[in-house]
Design a binder for these strands. Structure first.
Lengths: 205, 205
DNA sequence: CTCCCGATGACCGCTTCGGTCAATATCATT
DNA sequence: AATGATATTGACCGAAGCGGTCATCGGGAG
């Protein structure tokens, strides 16, 4: 790819990147027109092909950028260093929300990439997945002290409930395209407090 | 549309309908090729155009069929007649799961239709939504007796939690295309029992 | 043998796509 | 103002894919 892309203002770069995420998130790789990305980014198709040799290169740049970005957000918010599972949850969700503030469609893009089957990109995608997947697994490695929770609580079910509810909320509020990130953050805080109230052992029990 | 379509065996009709749901669920209306639907249904494109005058008519048939099917499943399982909120939840989810057994992509299709913007179909879609939306609203009309729940429980949060967790589970297990419906039903039962345990007032409290 | 009809492959005109390129607009330097 | 280098574009191309049509095929009933 052309190094001149990095000389662009961050704003311009962002508008291209986010246009790419939007279009590739909504259509399969093959049916995502480069022209639509260029138009949405406010530049001509020719110029876009000036920065990226072809469609495949553009796509792969976006994919790798997404992986790097996701990892850096997760690191910045110290999601996996928490011992308190609620705190971990909150940080993870806050990280995600803040990432979506800057890259509204990056999550949908990544997800669609995960299931992409086009022969032009599938090999590279799988390679990248294999290279990055190892980070996410250790979310289950947490050693949590059962004594802090209510008696008889099924911890696995608790985790499932919280995980699925978060995913469900995000999905429900993402699929229309735009999400009110501030409201989402407030809702998450409320939700996690609710879970604390529900699952944690009460004083004197 | 051509009445001869209804003379086909149910199996053949199903294969056409489900092929349509799959393709229209994965691409926007405009980018969904009729040829792909025909191929997946195991018939020629010409024959498909023999049953449906054009793409628009095929789409609208699928959409109305989806609305009718959804309504009939929800009715059959008596989802909205329940007084117990957990029972209502279970029935609603069971209905959905069983519908997906027969029509694996109908939910994704309906959802995508909801956000479709193509001028060729948008007016008809909105008309149909306006005609059918009135059914779904009354899920909130339930009069539930707060005394059966744990003291101080935020009922709205409880409902949100259950709703989003269900959506999250379905989404997480649907997006790959195939869902193990039997496992999903077992998981839902487990989940709802977990919620009962969590939210309901215990004996002697 | 023939009539009928379910079913198809070949085909058409049109649009859209990825990608190129010559030409223009922009701007700093002299 | 002239020059040259760079940023940016619109017009264009060949190929592919699209929705939709139609002449034709094949097989079962009479």
């Amino acid at each position: 790819m052309n190094e001149k892309f990095f000389n662009l203002s961050e704003e311009k770069q962002l508008s291209i990147i986010n246009a790419g995420y939007r279009v590739f998130a909504e259509n399969s790789y093959r049916k995502s027109p480069v022209s639509e990305i260029a138009a949405e980014a406010g530049i001509s198709k020719s110029l876009l092909f000036h920065y990226f040799r072809n469609k495949q290169e553009l796509y792969m740049y976006l994919l790798e950028y997404a992986a790097k970005t996701t990892y850096s957000y997760l690191s910045d918010y110290k999601c996996y260093e928490q011992q308190d599972i609620f705190e971990m949850m909150l940080r993870g969700l806050t990280a995600k929300i803040n990432m979506m503030k800057k890259y509204p469609d990056i999550t949908r893009f990544t997800l669609r990439a995960y299931y992409e089957t086009d022969p032009e990109v599938i090999d590279d995608i799988k390679a990248l997945i294999g290279r990055t997947a190892s980070f996410e697994v250790n979310s289950n490695k947490m050693k949590i002290d059962p004594s802090q929770f209510r008696e008889g609580l099924d911890l696995e079910m608790m985790y499932n409930d919280m995980y699925y509810a978060s995913e469900g909320y995000l999905w429900e509020n993402t699929r229309s395209g735009i999400i009110d990130t501030d409201k989402a953050e407030r809702d998450f805080r409320r939700m996690i407090n609710f879970w604390r109230e529900q699952y944690l052992r009460k004083e004197g029990e």
